[in-house]
Amino acid sequence: MSSEIVHRLSPEEEELAAKRGELAQLEAQLADEELALASLKADLAAFEGLYLRRVGILYAELDELKARLAELRAEQAGTPEANAAAAEARTQAEDAYSAAHGEAAEAQPFLPTADLKKLYRDAAKRVHPDTAAHDADRARRERLMKEVNAAYAAGDEEALRRLLADLDASPDAVQGAGVGADLIRVLRQLKQVRNRIAAIELEVTVLSETDLAKLKAKADQAATGGRDLLEEMAASVQARVIVSRQEFEKVSTSGADR
């Protein structure tokens, strides 16, 4: 009977089944790693916001005082060197101000719920551009993945639920070009997913090496010992602000005496 032939898988079909299993596993790993990367970025952004609000603004204040002092000295001395120093100090103060009071300083603490993480993982598995079967589908998935990342960073569970529901309503186009074509497609997907996993790992390494990540690690370590590192850092910059202010007042009154 012909049904016996149908049940026996050809070597190509076996290969395809094995590769599909491998792909499913890698896709799950990819979703986990995307989640870890997105969480790391959100954690760092939250810490950056905290740092800017507590320490960064004090550096900006310090730079402002230094700029005023340099401008005062330039006024009193009137030399080209003094003028150049004042201009440089002013630029620095402006840069520091816009950095400390910019958008980054508004980042709020990132505390993802288990639900949010699960939704992210599910959505990432569904829309990840590197699991696209066709190039035509890639652009759409890239756009969706951006939405997923943004919703996660914003802690917006509802957006992720809506996105998943929309995907259920419009299933991906059915594939069916024969075993050979399917196998080639799966192999390509495997390669894309592996590349993306490697890229994520590199990005995590690069992010972990940044000043921000190193500082956060130190602050976390200090916190386990009951210390508030940002508070200590703020106090030390604050002390310099006070010294600078005293110096400024001294120079401004000495100028008035003359």
Binding site: Y51, G56, A100, A104
Partner: peptide, 9 residues
């Protein structure tokens, strides 16, 4: 700008 503030800290 923010990076240099963090690096300073």
């Amino acid at each position: 700008g923010t990076k240099s503030l963090v690096a300073r800290g």
